[in-house]
Design a protein around this nucleic acid. Structure first.
Lengths: 131, 131, 131, 131
DNA sequence: GTGGTCTAGACCACT
DNA sequence: GTGGTCTAGACCACC
């Protein structure tokens, strides 16, 4: 059973937190292409939210090419990431990298610490895929 | 004059975009401790937004320890970043590093590309401070 | 054996995709009046769907006058299209033409390109009938 | 005031009908880039539907690059259609052209009638833009 | 069983 | 004022 949880005190809306967790499981390989996700109702019950909230999260992830909803059958991890133009991909990554860099400078963290953190997180994602 | 701009179609609210830009200028050294920021009215006029939007951005940044409002005199870059506990600092950086890592894996970017992007952004910040 | 296939990730329901394919084969002459269609069970097995899905598709097509179910014998292409009032026929065609036109304008496609596409598709249908 | 209306007996969901109408107004030039659409609440009141239904329609049109929602300000026609890869654009047009061609053959309409309908619809869209 | 749509209404966030 | 999120619950469509 997939572990999902919400931080009700977070500034991010619930549907957005759910999206991030699913993205994480897909990125880490815990969820693989073709895998079935918890049904909308099951996830809603488990998280203690309204089914419509899960519908929104799953729907947005479908738009993003991460999931694939099949009427009457369920929701699945998409077989292949929707081809995003290389330029857009690079731009998205750079936005996240810049955001990290700005915080690092403000918090006065040395470059090596920042790079180490990124490496650790990348390895953590790979690690989860193993079993 | 500080260059500020908004992407009205962005998902991020205007005040949040403004905050990010101020953080960027402070991180890069374009704005140094003690520097005066544009007045709320001037910034609002320049950006074409409601002054309340600038008030909110400056207020949040004051709360975060980046700015320092002095009644009747204006808004300034704080002399020293409010001391954030090392643990919190690490946690904030790790959150950003994780977010970058998740996207990198999903977009299938190799580790070296990711690290290069981060290094580039860190250097870009340092570069802006020089002149 | 008739080639049938489903796109499970499509927004259109399975029964609707099946209908469209049968319509296509009938329009192109691959299926001619009186021809027998695959049995409900055979089609369901071939497509990997629930027989009820095929029942629904065949049923709707019978209602539209494209097919003709004969109890105990099978499902056949109707001898003559059920006479649809000229006015309704025109209206249905115009609906599809308008939908095409709206997309063409939005996608900034020149008129000649649009007309060429339509001509090509009409010829493709005629071409399939030949052999 | 923009004319909007729903056919409650239609098989298409209300939000989808709304989308089609907005697409039509944008394609015809009745709505031009930058134009403000009726607010979500105003449109909902006018159409006699729940605001959430309009939210869904506007949201999907934003994903499609037709509209642009700005928190607290309103919903506007996007300045420029999101660049869709030429290949996808062609594919979308061809799908609509094929659907038209299939119906034309089934309804036994001669090629010239079909092409005339398409031309008429394209001209109708251009005509509405004039004033 | 699954997902899809819609309502009525609440409360929050942004400008 | 604007749009954004969420709830509780209904009913429909698909498989």
């Amino acid at each position: 059973m997939l572990h999902l949880h919400l931080d009700r005190s977070s500034a991010l809306p619930a549907y957005s937190q759910l999206m991030e967790q699913v993205r994480h499981y897909v990125a880490s390989g815990v969820l693989r292409p073709g895998d079935k996700l918890p049904s909308i109702r099951a996830a809603a019950r488990y998280l203690g939210v309204n089914p419509a909230t899960v519908v929104k999260a799953y729907g947005e992830l479908e738009h993003a090419g991460v999931l694939c909803r099949e009427h009457g059958r369920g929701v699945f991890v998409a077989e292949r990431m929707k081809a995003m133009p290389a330029k857009e991909r690079q731009a998205e990554l750079r936005r996240h990298a810049r955001s990290l860099a700005v915080r690092a400078v403000q918090l006065d963290a040395p470059e090596e610490t920042v790079l180490r953190l990124v490496t650790e997180e990348l390895e953590a994602l790979r690690g989860e895929a193993a079993p």
